[in-house]
Design a protein around this nucleic acid. Sequence first.
DNA 1: TAGATTGTTAATCGATTAACAATC
DNA 2: TAGATTGTTAATCGATTAACAATC
Lengths: 219, 219
Amino acid sequence: MTIRKQRRKEGIPRGVISRLPKYYRYLSGLSQAQEKISSAELGKALNMTAAQIRSDLSYFGSFGLHGYGYRVDELKNHISAILGLDREYSLVLIGAGNLGRAIASYPNFRKRGFIIKAIFDADPEVIGTELAGLTIRSIDTLEDYLQANPCDIAVITTPKEASQAVCDRICRAGIKAIWNFSPLDLRVPNDVILEHTHLTDSLLQLSFQITNNETEKSS
Amino acid sequence: MTIRKQRRKEGIPRGVISRLPKYYRYLSGLSQAQEKISSAELGKALNMTAAQIRSDLSYFGSFGLHGYGYRVDELKNHISAILGLDREYSLVLIGAGNLGRAIASYPNFRKRGFIIKAIFDADPEVIGTELAGLTIRSIDTLEDYLQANPCDIAVITTPKEASQAVCDRICRAGIKAIWNFSPLDLRVPNDVILEHTHLTDSLLQLSFQITNNETEKSS
DNA sequence: TAGATTGTTAATCGATTAACAATC
DNA sequence: TAGATTGTTAATCGATTAACAATC
């Protein structure tokens, strides 16, 4: 226990963090009828070793019962709390292009507690129109809005030409977490949390694998 | 050289593959005026060590000049070839919801040689309408289409309830690479390449970091 | 040539896995 | 209690980095 606490102090490895949503997603998809699950079962379903699952979870506590496994409900709740899903987050979305529209309209985010409060764009044609129940605001009013309505997360779906400037502005306005979709590695102050989703990078990884396919197999 | 060849045989590590698009993106963004770049400069720009860049590249060959660095143009072309960007790929997109529409309308994919040839949906309201210059087809015609027009990549943007069934159908129809956006870990035969982009997982990682933020810093 | 920077090896670091005592 | 499975340690594996001979 002491050692694990120490491990935790040193920070949770990226790999562990990236697996938590998968655990959560899988547990959420199980039928209500399934009361228990062992690390071996979970590992089989998610195509990973039982040891890795137990090791990942042990960063956060002891959620299982010796000789039994894990109660599905309990484990799901623990992971939900670890992920920070027991509260709401307010979001601003910047860039009402195709991708911005898709994200604004995606109902699952709201379901998990991520509420888009305002949408901004630079295009006069778009400003003032409706999207996902909100009136799109002018990017010029970004700072005013954020000062009056501090938000937890900014989603950047602008073209890459605009994204660093937008990023600088929202950081100055006090945003502490950014989800960036523009194909540019943004620079942020190091107290700001940054998560990239580079669609083109994923596609290039796919084309790499197609190209370098001979004899290799993915499991 | 022999050893590197051996390394290559053993397969390129995931981490290396995931960094290649970043190298490519950065090099593409440089001004035409910049003729050369050293691993040290590149490392500084991308926030990684020079050794890692040289090590990554050495999986594929020797692209630098001793005592000089890399010619930007040459290196970009090499990486482009490694990524398989020197050819075109034909894509089908399945699921013309918000996300599907965004992807179909995103011009950068086409620019890189990823050409969407057909779009499918299950909704009779949507079938027959236009999207990105294509008429949306009925999902019922998926197999017929793929038989007549073999495609390189299928993009799945259906709701998660439909995605595994769609996945099974396209695998049976001979698709060898899938880009999946539905929030479900698809099962595929192991000669099929699968790339996931789970938007919700990224958002949960962000909320984890917000929640577990104290004293930690991301670089 | 002297200076610079590569490509590659060896050393280090960190993450995964196997094994097992603890225990329900 | 006997059987099962956890949580954790130690062993293994793989990836990153530092160092340096090769060389332009």
